[in-house]
Design a protein around this nucleic acid. Structure first.
Length: 289
DNA sequence: CACCACCCCTGGACGC
DNA sequence: TGCGTCCAGGGGTGGT
């Protein structure tokens, strides 16, 4: 569920709360969600049956380190320590952070701070990942190099490059993190509606002015969603338990069968790349090149 | 390269 | 109340 706006909201909150704080201790409660790129395949997949991490590995998760910066690319975060170590965090579908002392289930990793607070990584479905890297350079090379340009900084030119030569439906392409990083099912549908683009339109058919509008709408919607603290669907919560409010601005997501806000025709649901997709048949047209 | 089925998981909604 | 079933949908893998 967390897409770029939700992850960026976490980044801003973590920046405000963690910067210049020391991590006294790190605990791994679920080895399953933790990976170290030095492991044979863990650069890509998490290490399922590994022995407990060696003591030195905890330094890669910032034990004894001081947080100096928090970065984001697409839906992934990097928490950087003064030593240079960098922790990559991918929230998957149900991952979240908590600084609450309140008890929680599905807590997998905890960072115990110098002021007594505890940062928790919580993820019921365990699709998320916490990965310790020796440096941000290592993290970027092994993890972020496979991602396309960040969606928040997308330009018509970058979007045109991403779409070039691809006959895939534009919605599939927007969801492909190696083409553009950060867009998930909610914001893909919202941006396509705002740009009046049909989700099944082959990507290479989009005319320059359509690409320009789509890039513009993507940035506008992602920015507005960040300003609203993201979308709160089900129990997604921000760092200290507050909810985002952008779900109140969704115009098509999860609204199949309801009237279009613009033309009042009933919105249509279909599946694209296995994802539930909602669009308006009269507002979102196939475009001719 | 693109698409698909399948898998990793749990919780909430819904029908009976 | 409780049980079975479906759905949510990020992303890796392996097959066609």
């Amino acid at each position: 569920m967390p897409e770029l706006p939700e992850v960026e909201s976490y980044r801003l909150a973590l920046e405000a709360e963690l910067l210049s704080h020391r991590v006294n201790a790190v605990r791994i409660l679920t080895r399953f969600v933790v990976a170290f790129p030095a492991d044979p395949v863990a650069g890509i997949v998490r290490s399922r049956t590994d022995a407990p991490p060696a003591r030195a590995r905890f330094a890669l998760l910032l034990k004894g380190d001081t947080v100096t910066s928090i970065l984001r690319h697409g839906k992934q975060l990097a928490i950087i320590g003064r030593s240079g170590a960098a922790v990559a965090i991918h929230l998957g579908m149900t991952g979240r952070f908590s600084l609450d002392a309140a008890p929680a289930t599905h807590v997998h990793v905890t960072w115990h701070l110098d002021d007594g607070r505890t940062l928790r990584f919580i993820d019921p479905r365990r699709f998320g990942l916490v990965a310790g890297h020796e440096s941000f350079d290592d993290l970027r090379t092994k993890r972020w190099s496979r991602l396309g340009p960040d969606a928040l900084a997308i330009t018509p030119k970058l979007l045109a490059v991403a779409c070039a030569g691809s006959a895939r439906p534009i919605k599939s392409l927007l969801l492909d993190q190696s083409r553009v990083a950060g867009i998930g099912n909610i914001y893909a549908d919202e941006a396509l509606f705002a740009a009046r683009v049909h989700p099944l339109e082959p990507a290479h058919n989009l005319a320059p002015d359509t690409l320009e509008l789509l890039a513009l709408q993507l940035r506008a919607i992602l920015t507005a969603a960040i300003d609203a603290g993201g979308s709160t669907i089900r129990d997604h919560r921000m760092l200290v338990g507050t909810a985002g409010s952008y779900q109140n601005h969704h115009r098509v997501y999860a609204r199949a069968g309801q009237p279009c806000n613009t033309c009042h025709q009933l919105l249509v649901g279909l599946r694209v790349s296995g994802r539930a997709t909602v669009f308006c048949r009269s507002c979102q047209l196939h475009h001719e090149k």
